Computed example of a mutant assay.
Amino acid sequence: MLKLNRISLTQRAGIFATATGMMIVLFLHFPFDGYRNKELVVTRYAIESCPEPVDPRKDGIGAVVAEIDVVKRCPDQKEWQYLPFSQWESEAPVFRIFTKASTAAIALTFIGILGAIWVWLFRQFGIDKSTLQDR
């Protein structure tokens, strides 16, 4: 009876290459600084011009006070709305091609599929010793 032996050296090389490729893509995407997953959307327009609201995540408490002042003085309503996942962007990618989170996820999936195909193609079969009997 045939069964899969342990992982061969060729399969180990494929697993190593797959893991290395995935780590490289993750580094090039660089999700460690966070994501741009919100955008400012105008919900009601003002008649006169108003200053732009500031993102409170970036400028701290001073931005919150400035935002409250803008809301008091201007009837223009702007809100931060969450973007769909396909439009999320990394704050500081190493390469621009990996800016979008969906692009990095597709690249990671592709590399994982290639690695799985590699391991499957180079599997080795052997003889199961438990089925052999002394004759």
Rank of each mutant, 00 (worst) to 15 (best):
M1L: 06
L2P: 00
N5F: 02
N5R: 07
R6A: 00
R6P: 02
S8Q: 03
L9D: 10
Q11N: 04
R12F: 12
R12L: 14
R12H: 07
A13R: 07
A13Y: 09
A13P: 04
A13N: 09
G14W: 01
G14Y: 02
G14D: 02
I15S: 07
I15V: 13
A17H: 02
A17C: 11
A17D: 01
T18L: 11
T20Y: 14
G21P: 03
M23V: 14
I24K: 15
I24P: 09
I24E: 06
L26W: 08
F27C: 03
L28E: 02
L28I: 05
H29D: 03
F30N: 12
P31N: 07
G34L: 13
G34M: 11
G34A: 12
R36C: 15
E39K: 15
E39P: 10
L40K: 14
L40D: 04
L40G: 11
V41S: 11
V42E: 15
T43H: 13
R44G: 10
A46T: 06
I47W: 15
I47K: 15
I47V: 15
I47M: 14
I47L: 15
E48G: 12
P51C: 12
P51D: 05
E52I: 13
V54Q: 13
D55L: 14
P56I: 12
P56Y: 14
R57G: 08
D59I: 09
G60R: 06
G60P: 00
I61S: 13
I61Y: 11
I61E: 12
G62P: 00
G62N: 10
G62V: 11
A63V: 02
A63N: 09
A63G: 09
A63D: 00
A66D: 05
A66V: 06
A66Y: 09
E67C: 10
I68E: 07
D69R: 00
V70D: 03
V71E: 00
V71K: 06
V71H: 05
K72G: 03
K72A: 08
R73C: 00
R73N: 06
C74K: 01
Q77C: 02
K78E: 01
E79N: 02
Y82E: 14
Y82D: 12
L83D: 04
P84R: 01
P84L: 04
Q87W: 14
Q87R: 14
Q87Y: 12
W88K: 04
E89N: 06
E89K: 04
E89M: 08
S90D: 04
E91V: 06
E91C: 01
E91S: 05
A92Q: 05
P93C: 01
V94P: 03
V94L: 05
F95Y: 07
R96P: 06
R96N: 04
R96S: 07
I97A: 11
F98T: 01
T99V: 03
T99N: 09
A101C: 02
A101L: 07
S102N: 07
A104P: 02
A104V: 00
A105S: 11
L108D: 04
T109E: 05
F110P: 08
I111S: 10
I111M: 12
G112H: 06
I113D: 06
A116W: 14
I117Y: 11
W118V: 08
V119G: 09
V119F: 15
V119H: 05
L121S: 12
R123P: 03
R123E: 02
R123I: 03
Q124T: 13
F125R: 09
G126Y: 09
D128T: 07
D128K: 03
K129C: 10
S130F: 11
T131A: 12
L132S: 04
L132R: 08
